[in-house]
Design a protein around this nucleic acid. Structure first.
Length: 258
DNA sequence: ATGGTCGGTAACCGA
């Protein structure tokens, strides 16, 4: 059956993780992969290695921090890195058209501590993103918004909800901001299907958190309502998190009828 | 136990 496969993965340094990304692309063969935290400048981006694997690249990077990219088997057109309203040196946004789908790849600010300057920046950023997506969802019937949202939408997305209560990634204002993104007309496709309990996408490097499944579900694939009807499934691939020198995030994969 | 471990970069910051 013809099928479109879309994925998101915070790789926490594309320089370090490139071999794992290439292996994963070879095995999973997604049509589109949104990557976050590349942590490399555009000059350093491994265009040739990815092309050899059959993937075209668009990227918006900076030194040391942040950085997003979209890899695809399709031609990539009309990139936008600085939507109206965003005036920001931090490279966190990359929208691009691939195979007739509008892909918006996001690395949402982490937010530091609740109440900090970084937290205020996160909430302001999310409010601006909501305004941008409210326009995009009208303009693009086939809209996919994916990435590291740095928000666990509900208690069931958190290994220990009471320990995380009103802490960063879980606070009520962050969850309301996530809900506001959905309210423009987007659907979290992971929750359209039965999923195992304790399904997470990120585990702290410390405390053997992965081995103990002390995780949060903070990486998401949101799609416009017409596209949600065509979604065949959404899963988290924990296998890369088991490797030596892993990213602290696992990829999320969604498949669509075409 | 309010810690721990990574990555980037070069003494710590960000996550």
């Amino acid at each position: 059956m013809p099928c479109l496969k879309i994925a998101t993965w915070n790789v926490n340094s594309l320089r370090v993780r490139l071999p794992q990304v290439l292996n994963w692309l070879g095995r999973e063969q997604p049509d589109v992969l949104g990557v976050q935290e590349t942590k490399i400048t555009d000059e350093e981006f491994p265009v040739a290695e990815l092309a050899e694997a059959g993937y075209r690249s668009v990227y918006s990077g900076q030194k040391t921090y942040n950085g997003v990219a979209v890899l695809s088997k399709f031609d990539l057109a009309d990139p936008v890195t600085d939507p109206k309203g965003f005036d920001d040196a931090q490279r966190r946004i990359l929208a691009v058209t691939a195979g007739g789908y509008r892909i918006v790849n996001l690395y949402v600010p982490n937010g530091g501590e609740v109440g900090s300057d970084k937290y205020a920046y996160k909430l302001d950023w999310l409010a601006k993103m909501r305004d941008y997506l409210s326009l995009e969802v009208k303009r693009c019937p086939r809209l996919i918004v994916l990435g590291d949202f740095n928000i666990a939408p509900e208690d069931r997305d958190v290994h220990d909800p009471d320990a995380w209560r009103e802490r960063i990634l879980c606070s009520t204002p962050e969850r309301e901001a996530f809900r506001a993104l959905l309210d423009v007309g987007l659907i979290d496709v992971f929750r359209r299907f039965d999923a195992a309990e304790k399904s997470y996408t990120w585990w702290d490097y410390r405390l053997n958190a992965f081995r103990r499944n002390m995780g949060l579900r903070i990486d998401h694939i949101l799609v416009s309502s017409s596209l949600a009807e065509d979604c065949l499934g959404c899963r988290i691939d924990v296998e890369p998190r088991k490797l030596e020198r892993p990213s602290d995030h696992a990829p999320v994969v969604a498949e669509f009828r075409v």
